[in-house]
């Protein structure tokens, strides 16, 4: 993402207040994520908040260093542009930082294995996964271009494939064990309780991301819906994969 051109351009094409909304949404999300994947015996709001801000700080610092190294940040740029470029990279980088710690950290300290799986927690993880993957793709020109090339029938097929792929992941979680789904659970129960809400979350997050990045400006309702369906495909995979991986 540090090497994606659109992410640099967004720093000066995007409304400052939309960037502010993005960061405002990201902070409670990071706190929640650090709460869900945090270390079991010190799960309280203060520690989770500290973890989240620590991750955000590391992310901003890393983004600044890498962007400078790549020549994306150079002398002569305005402070607004530099701050925008770092801020926009920091959000996915911070999510990545928290996820990396949960995956690569000391297994004994990891609360995830014995994490109590609550329904709300599962939906939250799906939202984080959708945001993380959607963030990578929402700024790109391709998302919009694909939606222009597709007909409504293509879009309907894409919705069906997104939901089918998500449902495959839901079953993979079931096989991994420790999931809410017991053997007797009928397939439609999991579809209704996990897959469809997961897809709805992915679609809403896609809409939010497209709006934040100014991709919906001036678009008619039909084209917004098409763009959301296109972005919801990777977001839905991200949402479903998050439950499997975390």
């Amino acid at each position: 993402m540090l090497m994606t051109m659109e992410m640099w351009q967004l720093a000066y094409t995007m409304d400052a207040w939309r960037l502010a909304v993005l960061v405002a949404v990201a902070v409670p999300l990071l706190v929640g994520l650090s709460h869900v994947i945090g270390i079991e015996d010190r799960r309280n709001l203060a520690d989770s908040s500290m973890d989240a801000f620590f991750a955000l700080g590391i992310a901003a610092f890393t983004s600044a260093v890498v962007l400078t190294m790549l020549g994306v940040l150079a002398p002569g740029m305005s402070a607004d542009e530099i701050a925008g470029k770092i801020a926009i990279q920091s959000v996915p980088a911070a999510i990545g930082a928290l996820l990396a710690r949960s995956q690569l950290g000391d297994a004994d300290d990891d609360a995830l294995d014995e994490r109590e799986e609550t329904y709300g927690g599962e939906l939250f993880l799906m939202a984080v996964g959708a945001l993380f993957l959607g963030f990578n793709l929402a700024p790109t020109e391709e998302m919009i271009l694909i939606s222009y090339q597709m007909s409504e029938w293509h879009a309907i097929a894409l919705i069906a494939i997104s939901i089918a792929a998500m449902h495959g992941f839901v079953f993979a979680v079931e096989f991994k064990g420790g999931s809410e789904l017991s053997e007797e659970t009928p397939w439609w129960s999991a579809l209704l309780r996990f897959t469809l809400p997961g897809y709805a979350i992915a679609a809403l997050i896609s809409l939010f991301l497209l709006w934040v990045f100014g991709r919906t400006d001036g678009l008619g309702l039909e084209m917004i819906v098409m763009a959301v369906v296109v972005l919801a495909f990777p977001s839905a995979i991200g949402a479903a994969a998050a439950r499997l991986i975390l």
Binding site: H35, T118, G178, E180, L181, S189, R193
Partner: peptide, 19 residues
Amino acid sequence: MNDEPESHPVNRPPHPAEW
């Protein structure tokens, strides 16, 4: 977010809110 501990999530009947 609901973080109430549930000791046997596998056997837990779905909460009405889930439906």
